[in-house]
């Protein structure tokens, strides 16, 4: 009987390993992060502020990256599932993508609230944590997405510089849960930690802002994405 349970555990482990396809989204978003660096050129070479020269272009770039990257990830998972013969559900990831993209839209409404949060980041994280608990407890269908949308929107509104990385992180959390991969979960956890560090310390405050000082915001999360993607490739 114990042998049978051991055999079943092996089958489960093999099925999970065969489903792994996380290298692609990590590499895609990692490369896209570093390609965004030139767009972080400061508004004026001598400016001390945190404005980029072409904010609309930067916003457009990240919107395109999120949409194309998200759809390409779904395509990749489906293609790999068809090729290997074991398919991962991508519905949850599509939901996370929609939430990440919809966050800034909801954020516009937050500007018109008659009050301000003392710490939008704190509120956003609490609401997102609540959404995660609701998801695990399989709360009524509408409650979890509403909490996730609100939490993401508040967080992105309070941390606009890393809003795109919050959207990517949301997708990674959902993918890691779907894949049930310890390695991917570890990479995602490292990414989230690095994102917090990035939110606290970047863009680097230097006497004269440069593209590198402004673009420092993409270096830490982008590096974790790239290294995680390479680790995923090596694993196969």
């Amino acid at each position: 009987m114990a042998d049978l349970l051991g055999d079943l555990a092996d089958l489960r482990r093999r099925a999970r390993e065969d489903r792994h396809a996380y290298a692609f989204p990590l590499l895609f978003f990692g490369v896209a992060s570093f390609l965004a660096l030139p767009l972080y050129a400061p508004a004026e070479p001598s400016a001390r502020g945190l404005d980029v020269r072409h904010p609309a272009l930067l916003d457009l770039y990240w919107s395109v990256v999120l949409v194309v990257g998200g759809l390409a990830t779904v395509w990749w998972y489906r293609r790999r599932g068809a090729r290997v013969g074991i398919e991962t559900s991508t519905r949850g990831y599509l939901g996370a993508l929609a939430i990440g993209l919809g966050g800034p839209v909801v954020g516009v409404a937050l500007d018109h609230l008659p009050f301000r949060f003392h710490s939008g980041t704190g509120v956003g994280l609490i609401v997102l944590a609540a959404a995660t608990v609701l998801w695990h407890r399989q709360a009524p269908r509408a409650v979890t997405p509403v909490a996730a949308v609100l939490g993401t929107a508040v967080l992105q509104h309070d941390q606009p510089v890393i809003a795109q990385f919050i959207a990517i992180g949301l997708g990674l959390v959902v993918l890691a849960a779907l894949e049930r991969s310890t390695r991917f979960t570890t990479i995602t956890a490292a990414y989230l930690v690095v994102l917090c560090v990035s939110a606290a310390f970047t863009p680097l405050a230097v006497p004269v802002a440069t593209t590198w000082s402004m673009g420092s915001v993409v270096v830490l999360p982008g590096s974790v994405l790239l290294l995680g993607g390479l680790a995923g490739l090596r694993r196969g």
């Binding site: 079943l8 089958l11 489960r12 099925a15 999970r16 065969d18 489903r19 599932g81 068809a82 290997v84 013969g85 074991i86 398919e87 991962t88 559900s89 049930r180």
Partner: peptide
């Protein structure tokens, strides 16, 4: 056990 790990699984797999 295998099918429960995925959305769906192919006969050949």
């Amino acid at each position: 056990t295998v099918a429960a790990e995925a959305k769906r699984v192919e006969f050949g797999y």
